[in-house]
Design a protein around this nucleic acid. Structure first.
Lengths: 359, 359
DNA sequence: CAGAATCCTGTAAACGCTTACATCCCGGTC
DNA sequence: GACCGGGATGTAAGCGTTTACAGGATTCTG
């Protein structure tokens, strides 16, 4: 393989100095004579010359690269976010470096370092469940940093996220309006990340404002691993007076809940209603189609990208101000009025009769 | 903001030459005296020194960066792929530059250029629906390039993809074994991308091998835009002898098909069976849970990343050999034996009776 | 104890570009 | 015709690394 051609090769072929080539390729075309431009174009095409970004940024100190660290790239939610980031960056002429932290602060730190080495001029990241040292490190980064989708509590860094409090309020009110008053909530352990805190608090506040109390048994804070939501749900529904509706604070939990209810022989929404949070395209095709709070994920990513992109362009530090995008409630068919009869009594009936037609 | 500190700052603080610092930071630690290493560590920590990758790669000609161009990052399928790529690259010590081509060859070409500028040492891409010029350009790239998930017909570049022919065969045989013989297929226009061609051909071949013919009316090749699959399906099912099963060659089409059947009052699988291709996590929670050919998407990404990563490491060009990963059929509940009665007759009955209990 | 071998460190050039400064040429002005 | 202004181009320095080469110190060998 022949080595990549350089600015000098072009200069020789076009019979000009490298300075002129540089002027042509680095956007200062207007001060190059038209006839020279033509020769340059020819030479560049012929050689397949592509400027060396490393050399350029070594000289200029700019890379036009933004680093993105997502908790887990391989889930649909994050990919929509990434789509938005991508769109925003392209619009502003930035390239995107991506890494997936796999929800581990240690990984994220490695990537941060790599990005800094590569000269990323700005960083977008989802904080992993908080590690104080880690956050402190972020704060020392000398370039604009935005927390995506959620914040690490106590980090003095701007956040671009959905308005989780509003979303939780929307979901809860919807249940309240349909006549529910015993509502259970399931969330991943919330202490570490602001989105979880806000969703839970939004729910609780709305309940209290409506004059309703939420007994501890109806609040399940579970680990982020499959199965734990199901167990929590089983316990919650085994009470003498189980909730008539569930607010599930994220999509994974919604999925698990639906599966659980299917298997437990409880009908959604006839026996129990569900409102979820997050709304991927396929929510509508689940059985039953899920009523959920939809978050403008793509816009979130784009907004974040544009905020850091602008800060970089202007050369100003990012304002600490956090942006919140409003979610909307999409009504589908997982919510109905609470059942008249006691669900547990009903459940026994159902499981019996169903087992007769089981496959 | 104070400027980033350089190797020289470290050298001065640690009272050594920059050469020694470089030896320490660039992995040649073993030839630096232990006592010097200690001083160096201290100085680096104190200054927060991070090597400048631009300078490094200007000198070495290596960047340890791989460029990835996906047709559309914001879909779940691609994000699983990206997760695999990410994992593979991390394992080999490469960073990932990402861009989304939005299925446009022109965009992809821009990104390709950007990557080349940034010195990507290898490229992973999904070809967009074929543009001859575009493919020719890819061929001239002097670094390892792999086509991901599908190939552009005629491009002499290796492909890492699922074995689509096998997948289609699996799906078709499954339907055959259940007693179907009138099977319809829906695919996006196949001529441009190998995965579509292979899936369609795999189906057709299996049918012929079974001694069955497939009338043209049962083959729908539709545009990749919402609604067109539905129309094609409506036409197909309106025949006097409509298919008793559908092989849907991708997930978008499966979703549209399920929706269509719901609305048309046809029961899946009692009236018509469906086998899909691609198997995201939520397939199991759709109504009904979809029998589908599952593709090892994550592994696909990882394998591709590792193939180019190794080629880069070894400094050898990539072998043209394509890798095919075997898919598996996941049986769920969208397939049953063909109905006894004519479906159209039955459909009329159903819609009548259902409209009485409509909500 | 001389000389060789080994270990550690320093000097300096080079990577490909941008850009301040210098130079040259040409037309316009008095 | 001398001068000036300005447009087009060239010269050269320097961005922060890596690395070939050289050199100094220490240890080993006979």
């Amino acid at each position: 393989m022949t080595p990549r051609s350089t600015i000098e090769d072009v200069a020789i072929l076009a019979n000009v100095s490298i300075a002129t080539v540089s002027r042509y390729t680095s956007g200062q075309r207007s001060i190059v004579a038209p006839s020279t431009q033509e020769r340059l174009k020819l030479a560049i095409d012929k050689l397949g010359y592509v400027p060396n970004a490393a050399a350029r940024s070594l000289k200029t100190g700019r890379t036009r690269l933004i680093g993105v660290i997502l908790a887990d790239v391989s889930h649909a939610y994050w990919s929509a976010l990434l789509g938005g980031i991508q769109a925003g960056c392209t619009e502003l002429g930035f390239g995107v470096l991506i890494a997936s932290g796999n929800n581990s602060a240690a990984n994220q730190y490695d990537y941060l370092r790599t990005y800094l080495e590569h000269g990323a001029e700005g960083i977008l990241f989802n904080p992993a469940a908080g590690d104080a040292q880690f956050v402190a490190d972020w704060m020392q980064v000398r370039i604009p940093v935005i927390q995506l989708d959620r914040g690490s509590p106590g980090a003095a860094l701007p956040v671009v996220a959905v308005d989780n409090t509003l979303g939780a309020m929307l979901a809860t009110r919807h249940l309240l309006e349909r006549g529910h008053s015993r509502i259970g909530v399931i969330s991943w352990h919330p202490e570490t990340l602001t989105n979880r805190i806000e969703r839970l608090n939004g729910f609780l506040t709305t309940m209290y404002d409506a004059g309703l109390s939420v007994p501890d048994q109806n609040v399940a804070l579970v680990d982020q691993q499959s199965g734990s939501a199901r167990e929590a749900l089983a316990a919650m529904m085994a009470q003498a007076e189980p909730p008539t509706a569930i607010f599930s604070t994220n999509m994974e939990i919604s999925l698990e809940s639906v599966r659980f209810f299917h298997e437990a022989g409880l009908r959604v929404p006839a026996d129990v209603s569900i409102v979820g949070f997050d709304d991927p395209e396929w929510t509508s095709v689940v059985d039953p189609p899920l009523t959920a709070v939809a978050t403008p994920t793509f816009r979130l990513g784009k907004l974040a990208a544009i905020r850091v992109g602008r800060a970089i362009r202007m050369g100003e530090p990012l304002r600490l101000h956090s942006s919140k995008l409003a979610p909307t409630l999409i009504e589908r068919r997982s919510v109905a009025a609470p059942p008249k009869r006691n669900v547990n009594a009903r459940r026994n009936q159902i499981t019996e009769s169903q087992s007769m037609v089981a496959i």
